[in-house]
């Protein structure tokens, strides 16, 4: 079976399972929190919340969502032992990670962008800027790749490790005033989406970081056992 066909089949199965499970509802609830915050600020007459706060909340959403959807996807199959169904077939091992990422990363991105758009509609600007959508969208895709990679390194605790990495390591790394900050997904998402600068190099870094984490995940998949 070709890599593409395997990826598409696994992505299709993943989407059907997602549609029928509860993860999407839990993800929706999490993504609704910044919107509720913006609404609460507006209703309470406290004025419009600072955009920085709203973007900061979205970065927290970005830290949690890849953990919920992508990081636990491979680990869940290993823990539940359903991975045996995939690996006993002539499927390239990497197709499992790529298929799951292909199905879940766009969903996470859509949910994050929908949340941000609604937050912005209620918030100070009235509408999301294209740069903020680009920054958060690419940031979500790259964060999902980070989650996927970490999920293959620590399959049983992929979700927790992904949240801790994106929250404590990636965000802190991104805040450093040195070039190491370039290794942070949240740093580039912030540069593109909030500060609306360095769009091209930022896009390049996000694509590169996402690809790097996927390659790490793919290499790790080769060694994993059911």
């Amino acid at each position: 079976m070709s890599m593409t066909a395997a990826i598409l089949t696994i992505a299709r199965i993943t989407l059907v399972r997602l549609r029928r499970g509860r993860a999407l509802w839990v993800g929706g609830l999490i993504a609704a929190l910044p919107v509720l915050f913006a609404v609460a600020i507006r209703l309470s007459g406290g004025g419009q919340s600072p955009r920085e706060t709203l973007f900061g909340l979205m970065q927290l959403v970005l830290a949690v969502m890849p953990g919920l959807f992508v990081a636990s996807a491979v680990g869940e199959d290993i823990e539940d032992r359903t991975i045996a169904y995939l690996w006993a077939r002539p499927v390239p091992r990497g197709a499992v990670l790529l298929g799951k990422w292909l199905a879940l990363a766009p969903i996470v991105t859509l949910v994050v962008l929908a949340s941000w758009s609604l937050t912005e509609v209620v918030g100070p600007r009235g509408a999301p800027s294209p740069a903020s959508l680009l920054g958060l969208g690419l940031g979500a895709l790259a964060a999902c790749a980070v989650g996927g990679g970490l999920g293959t390194i620590v399959p049983r605790h992929g979700m927790a490790v992904s949240i801790v990495y994106l929250l404590f390591f990636d965000l802190i790394l991104g805040a450093m005033p040195v070039s190491l900050a370039n290794l942070s997904v949240s740093h580039h998402a912030r540069l593109i989406g909030y500060e609306e600068t360095m769009a091209l190099s930022g896009v390049g870094w996000l694509v590169g970081l996402g690809a790097l984490w996927l390659v790490i995940g793919l290499r790790r998949m080769r060694k994993l056992e059911a």
């Binding site: 509860r22 993860a23 839990v26 993800g27 609830l29 999490i30 929190l33 959403v61 949690v64 953990g67 919920l68 636990s72 869940e76 979700m159 927790a160 949240i163």
Partner: peptide, 9 residues
Amino acid sequence: RHAVALWAA
């Protein structure tokens, strides 16, 4: 994982 995500959120 839903419980962890909800708690983290």
